[in-house]
């Protein structure tokens, strides 16, 4: 069974998924950050593939990508670092990035390598649904990888149904019309969107991302979905201090039950 499915079986709610950029703040931090996240209690991990032109990202993740690239991060380097991933990390790990570096690596070679090191899924925000179905879905399936699609408050119901039918693992609910890290907190408008999606009875699990940064926003999001995703806030934390202890403290803080 894909580890993503297993994670949603093992835990019924309040799953925490944490994103970090590979090669940030230091080139060789990738594995130690993933390990600390796992030990600290993150339920899923997304490793970001740095790209020169990340149009869906706000300033925080952009800056981390720039630094990672300056540090010398490449896909080859990342796969080398992840060679021993499964000796250290038990939870599902997804790679998230833009399509161009993946295409240059070779889509099938990339998927084969992901399967080899124990990656469970991909999030490629600029891979369109049609091209996915026609060109790439069979390749992902061949290697047992799940492809996660995004929906936003502007996504039509018809399109959400289509995305639900194509998705495996979970659907990434973007909480507002924004790039990553642009807004913080959750408004009443967003809550009505969360409620609408919740009431649609989708077959996939749902994780809410964008604007989730702390215990309060995480807990709020978890009222309307199976869990939530933290990205920019965690990158900011890494900028200050990427020690395992700091990571574990943060995860425990975010996940602590609401008093």
């Amino acid at each position: 069974m894909n580890r993503i499915d297993q994670a949603f079986i093992d835990k019924k709610d309040r799953l925490l998924n944490v994103y970090f950029t590979a090669g940030y703040p230091n080139l060789e931090d990738t594995l130690s950050i993933a390990k600390a996240l796992d030990e600290g209690g993150a339920d899923l991990i997304e490793i970001g593939l740095p790209f020169s032109d990340p149009v869906a990202d706000g300033p925080t993740i952009q800056a981390s990508s720039t630094v990672a690239l300056e540090n010398g991060m490449t896909l080859n380097r990342l796969f080398d670092q992840l060679a021993t991933l499964r000796e250290h990390v038990k939870v599902p790990v997804l790679l998230m990035g833009y399509i161009n570096p993946v295409l240059q690596y070779g889509f099938e070679a990339f998927c084969a390598k992901c399967a080899e090191v124990g990656i469970d899924g991909l999030i490629l925000p600029d891979l369109p649904m049609y091209e996915y179905e026609v060109m790439y879905q069979s390749v992902l399936e061949k290697y047992g990888l799940y492809n996660v699609f995004l929906i936003t408050p502007q996504t039509s119901e018809e399109r959400i149904q289509k995305i639900d039918s194509l998705s495996k693992g979970f659907i990434y609910m973007v909480s507002s019309a924004s790039t990553t890290g642009a807004k913080s907190g959750i408004s009443t408008e967003q809550i009505s969107y969360f409620q609408k999606i919740k009431s649609m009875g989708l077959k996939n699990k749902r994780l809410i991302g964008f604007g989730i940064s702390d215990n309060e926003s995480f807990s709020k999001a978890c009222e309307y979905a199976d869990g939530a995703i933290i990205g920019s806030a965690f990158i900011k934390l890494m900028e200050e201090n990427s020690s395992s202890e700091n990571i574990k403290n943060y995860i425990q803080q975010v996940k602590s039950p609401v008093s």
Binding site: D53, V55, I99, N100, P101, D126
Partner: peptide, 21 residues
Amino acid sequence: GREGVLHGSRSILMQTDDGQV
């Protein structure tokens, strides 16, 4: 350049071996 994806379309693109523009 080589075939690649930038700014929303698949075209020909000047990039590194690693797909950075």
